[in-house]
Design a protein around this nucleic acid. Sequence first.
RNA 1: GGCCCCGUCGUCUAGAGGCCCAGGACGCCGCCCUCUCAAGGCGGUAGCGCCGGUUCGAAUCCGGUCGGGGCUACCA
Length: 492
Amino acid sequence: MSGVRVRFPPSPSGDLHVGNVRSALFNYAFARHERGAFVFRIEDTDTARSTEESYRSLLADLRWLGLDWDEGPQVGGEYGPYRQSERTGLYADVAARLRGAGYGYDCYCTAEEVATRNRAAGRPAGYDGHCRDLTESERDGHLAAGRTPVLRFRMPGERVEFTDLVRGTVGFDAEHVPDYVLVRADGSPLYTLTNPVDDALMRITHVLRGEDLLASTPRQIPLHRALRDLGISDAPMPAFGHLPFVMGEGNRKLSKRETPEVSLNHLRARGYLPEAVLNYLALLGWSMGEDTEIFTLDQMCRAFTLDRVGVNPARFDPKKLLAVNGTKIRALSTDEFADRVTPFLIGAGLVADPPTVGQAELLRAAAPLVRERTNLLTDAVGMLGFLFADGDAFTVDEAAAAKQLTGAHAGTVKAAVAALEPLPGWTADNLQAALREALVDRLGLKPKHAFGPVRVAVTGRQVSPPLFESLELLGRDRTLARLRDALSRVGE
RNA sequence: GGCCCCGUCGUCUAGAGGCCCAGGACGCCGCCCUCUCAAGGCGGUAGCGCCGGUUCGAAUCCGGUCGGGGCUACCA
């Protein structure tokens, strides 16, 4: 293992969206490429927003994606605990030392007071340093008034420059980075404190995160220095790299309302493959070069370097994700495909949990036929339903019947029954020959019109796997039974 | 408003001064295949935001401009 250490530090509020996943993926790929460590940390200092439920789904999501972490919840590590809510004592200690050394100071101002002063002075927003050097009597006055202070970081008053791993040199002048709050008035630590402290304590070497945090970097660098100065950390300053945004449609923020596909839960439920989600997301802000767009996680890790990370924001495109998903599904082996579809069939109540031996065999036999026409695993459920739904569970779609099973189709269905009843070998080839002969040659129907009614009668839908193979899989008895049922429907 | 980041087909991108009258992918359109739907094959549509400069030569370098985004919380 090299010395590279990166982290993915989500806060457990709401479910993971594609933007988070993309950040996790890049960190993961970088760690693997560098043979470093991928640290998973939970930033749940905002108790009002953090929930246990979303903490658990965070773990499940990362597991589902296959982004295994080297350190973090459930696996431990030498820098734990990895849940910030379990590190509060540590933050209190760091805060006290920062205050003691003058790197932090108590601030009694309310947001309104600061805003009022800035407005009066014609200054832009941001803290004005009012409490930086309070006299003892001023402090006593605030205390007497019942105010409790926040802990504010004392910025060093000099320009901060750093070399961003993806953007190059970025600099901020001191007057644009005001002193900021580290600890709330109630004593609880803020992200502004816990994030840099943990990066230092966990010896993170590369901070790869969203572009929205670019502006907070000049605040974190002096804090890192203070931590080192006080001997709280002896870790080198991490390198920072800011990944381009993943935007929603119309260049607006990602919105689950507008585009449900941005939610990982939704993607999983709809039948997207984790490897497809990852592959697609890799394309947002990174490219393998040449013209390769489809690759495995492993291939990505081998090829992943920061110099190929782009700088401009990317729009999330559900259509392309779907196309990648289809490509990945078609690349699955028959058995893998069957395995992936099974949970959806169980969920739909079409097969037992676990499937019976017969169901499993039928599924495997049908898999190659269905896999070819599936872009979403949930599509497959619709196409496979007729094979597993027996008796009353099998229904004919009314809209399909209205088009293909009316009185006008009586002759077609009747001829089909007559042709299939005496058929000796129930194979796709024989079935095709018999139906063509009876419907196309004898009745003079166009193939399209000849087979449509049969398809609807037997599969219940207008869209199905290839007809003759479907009939073979369904078997003689069930096929004929359904055709006879259709007979009564068309009025025979 | 201030500060910061960004600007190649509708979208994601390749492109690191001549290999580019810009390549790939998704989408879209057409054709082929065809029992439905897909898949597949073939073809097509469409882009270097704009203006200056540097250079023999710029998508590539520089400046400006316009446009988009982020930050400006006792959220993360």
